[in-house]
Amino acid sequence: MVEEFVVVSDLQKSFNEHKAVDGVSFSVHKGEIFGLLGPNGAGKTTTIRMLSTVLVADGGEITIGGHSMQRESAAIRSIIGVCPQELALYDDLSALDNMVFFGRMAGMTGLEAKEQAMANLKLMGLVDRAKGKVAKFSGGMKRRINLAIALMGNPQLVFLDEPTVGIDPQSRNHIYENILGLQKKGMTILYTTHYMEEADRLCNRVAIMDGGKIIAMDTPHQLKSQIGPPEKVTLEEVFLRLTGRSLRD
């Protein structure tokens, strides 16, 4: 029996006249890596912002870990971690200070936060840069710190919004390995990306969004098999077949 950790039903969000998210429904199984794919402006980030409690939905239902977003948003906050698309870091603080700060904001004691910060830095291969000022880090290092902060407080569900944008293959590969390691520990991960190869490699299931709607949802293997032999078709071909080849802003 699969446990549904995240249940989203008919989610709606508009900005002025523009419907950014239009009746999105999906569920994420516990311990699963679920990919949310789509071109720019598809509504992925808006969906994640609503799921991570920072944006209020206009309509629909969200349940995370058995808690209703409408009634128990505080309980939801206590079990989630967010790695936003932009680098949400304090450049003038050290990596360790950033992590300890967010750990304490997540309810950890000073000692717990420091211990976990060092553990996460080790995980990200940045222990020797713990006291370095983030402003002096490379893009890849900042991305890893951004992810490490999302793991502070031992969340049960982590939102990773394009965590590998603009970094070198080495850093990207390091992040992949970490994400798979987190899944092995039982963490549920909701992942958005533009890199189809990345989604194919990491995600158990993916939902492809376009125009604020989910237009396809299944395992990468099943989606590929819809247009040809899965071993010969790429997820990118599926994506382009579904979303079209016209340029998006």
Partner: peptide
Amino acid sequence: KNNTLERLLATSV
């Protein structure tokens, strides 16, 4: 602009 405030909101703050 850096989204650190929004990140704080996603914690228990």
